[in-house]
Design a protein around this nucleic acid. Structure first.
Lengths: 188, 188
DNA sequence: ATTACAATACCGGTCAGTCGGTATTGAATG
DNA sequence: CATTCAATACCGACTGACCGGTATTGTAAT
């Protein structure tokens, strides 16, 4: 009895992510994805229900991966809140730099309605940021009336900065600009 | 020889804007737009070269309209920089509230490459914000190492806030949160 | 009768999803 | 082990639907 090959699934997700990140949903066709992943088109349907499903899985994978990465590198509770803030910004930016084609998918509402599973994984990423801010507020270092909103801003500001600079601005400079922006905005 | 009716053109743009704002490019079909605008499908081609052209015109019209609105309500040079900042934020948010379906098109890079004309009109909007910040910096009230980036952030933060709250947050609250955020971030 | 335009038929191209066939696998059997 | 066999992964040609764009027609107004 043959078993689905997790590796092949990964390959397909990666290929799809690369293409969906560069062009928009309807401009990317499945045969293209299949070619990029070096599998037959029919195989896509062994691993995914539909194009829409594949797209969702790409986004979910993206958020999950990002969450894994961030939570590995960030300890919300301990440490100086400002250090934590710096860390979350720098790790977020770094992640986006390393995944240039995928990070464009990480934005909020795209016209396309988000399925609940995507919303959920996206939320986990946002809540990491929120908890960093909130713990800073509790410690009396930071100040923010709506940390949940601010967390959203952060993700979109990173996206904005990276898109605007088209990746030309050195990573470090973008990190410092965003950090100085947020730390001033949030410091008590 | 047909006489082009500016009014009809406007009607088509409005219909297209409404639909493009709700669904993404490829999901909106021309017969739908024609029906919404109450014109024949063929008429679309009297006024626009192609679907792509129509889409571009919608975005250009959106930025132009927004720019007109903002520059009518904001006087960059005179007045207190913080007042100006408040004004630009509140007017931007208000504009987006009044044009809920269109404002989603106003974001930066969408996977779709922006044609130069769109970039240009978008830039005019951004430069208004930038000049508000810069004049504040000159007066020694504000402080920002990259006003052009910050202007970008502003547009995306508004979009982010509006998308996240799904329009449920009262306009005034969103304005105040964003303003307090930006004024703290930029004040010397 | 001429003009303008909505309505709609039509054409050609594109693409998501299907289907029939083939290759691979692993388990059961002797 | 070796062989068989069922299950199913894999493939790519095909198809039906859809849609952008064009051409045609019917009609209402001047």
């Amino acid at each position: 009895m043959q078993i689905l090959d997790e590796n092949k699934r990964k390959k397909i997700i990666a290929a799809a992510g690369k293409l969906f990140g560069k062009n928009d949903y309807h401009s990317v066709c499945l045969s293209e994805i299949a070619a990029e992943a070096k599998v037959g088109k029919g195989t896509l349907y062994v691993y995914f229900k539909s194009k829409e499903d594949l797209f969702s899985c790409v986004r979910i994978e993206g958020y999950t991966d990002m969450y894994r990465y961030l939570s590995k590198n960030i300890d919300t509770l301990s440490g100086d809140p400002l250090d934590n803030l710096h860390k979350i910004i720098s790790e977020t930016v770094k992640y986006c730099y390393r995944n240039k084609s995928v990070f464009k998918l990480l934005r909020a509402g795209t016209g396309r309605k988000m399925n609940p599973k995507i919303k959920e994984t996206r939320k986990k990423v946002l809540e990491l940021t929120r908890s960093v801010i909130e713990s800073g507020v509790e410690k009396g270092i930071l100040c923010d009336s709506k940390p949940a909103y601010t967390a959203n801003y952060l993700l979109d500001v990173v996206r904005s900065g990276l898109t605007y600079s088209e990746g030309n601005l050195p990573q470090e400079e973008l990190i410092e600009h965003i950090f100085s922006f947020f730390s001033r905005a949030l410091q008590k």
